[in-house]
Design a protein around this nucleic acid. Structure first.
Length: 231
DNA sequence: CCATTAAAGGATT
DNA sequence: AATCCTTTAATGG
């Protein structure tokens, strides 16, 4: 079915330390497919029929508020798992996942979760460590939202994106997928206008380089200072 | 300090 | 042409 080699998985965090035989077994159970930019991989509340590994691309995890606003809960980068409802004792997806760029994914049927976890304890420990890390991330976000001002939150969001997905260019660290001011505002709980004003301010100081759906981090030191300034 | 509103121009499809 | 993205300014909580 899929002509993927198990060595593709070996370097990815969820499969760290697993034997070649285990990787082959996991790959044999998976189906690979593509999602074009902007399409849903799954929706909040939907029955969680599959769990996924992002082989290539970038995925946004989004929640909608009752009044129709949306919040970007997190981003999923290449090599990360998503939709692992079964690992959290759920049988529906807790949020929406949308391809931010064209994506390649592996999918496993959720009903194989128990079998896979039992057969491959290394995969299980890696997965639960990852869930723990994501929990820590969201806790940090909660503290940020409650205590930091908008400029700090936006600076942090950009620093995190640059660190997680940045690609070095001659100008600085380019955030390597299309990210709009609107996206940043949905990540940081503010408005597109405030984000735009902050970014053009930092742009004119030479700390970042902005463009349509594009941000390059030029001076990480300065932005780190903004992020940690207590006034 | 920050959200809201309004207005306008550029980019994308 | 229609829609989306970004910027700027004014206003008010």
């Amino acid at each position: 079915m899929n002509r993927l080699d198990a060595s593709l998985l070996a370097d990815l965090p969820p499969f760290a330390g697993m034997s070649r035989a285990s990787l082959d077994d996991m790959l044999a159970r998976a189906a690979s497919f593509r999602h074009s930019k902007g399409t849903h991989i799954f929706r909040e509340g939907e029955e969680a029929l599959s769990f996924y590994l992002l082989l290539d691309g970038y995925v946004r995890v989004i929640k909608h508020t009752p009044v129709g606003e949306q919040v970007i809960v997190r981003h999923i980068a290449t090599g990360e798992l998503l939709g692992i409802a079964k690992a959290m004792g759920r049988d529906t997806y807790p949020a929406n996942a949308i391809a931010a760029v064209d994506c390649v994914l592996l999918a496993w049927p959720s009903h194989t979760w128990e079998v896979i976890v039992a057969a491959h304890p290394g995969f299980a420990t890696n997965t639960y460590a990852m869930i723990g890390n994501r929990l820590i991330d969201t806790q940090e976000r909660v503290v940020e939202m409650a205590t930091e001002r908008v400029a700090q939150r936006v600076a942090n969001a950009i620093l995190n994106l640059a660190r997680e997905t940045g690609r070095q260019t001659d100008e600085g660290i380019l955030i390597d997928f299309p990210i709009s001011r609107q996206d940043i505002s949905e990540m940081t709980g503010t408005t597109i206008h405030t984000v735009s004003r902050l970014l053009s301010g930092w742009d004119s100081k030479g700390w970042i380089k902005g463009g349509r759906q594009k941000i390059t981090l030029v001076d990480g030191q300065k932005l780190t200072m903004v992020a940690s300034a207590r006034d």
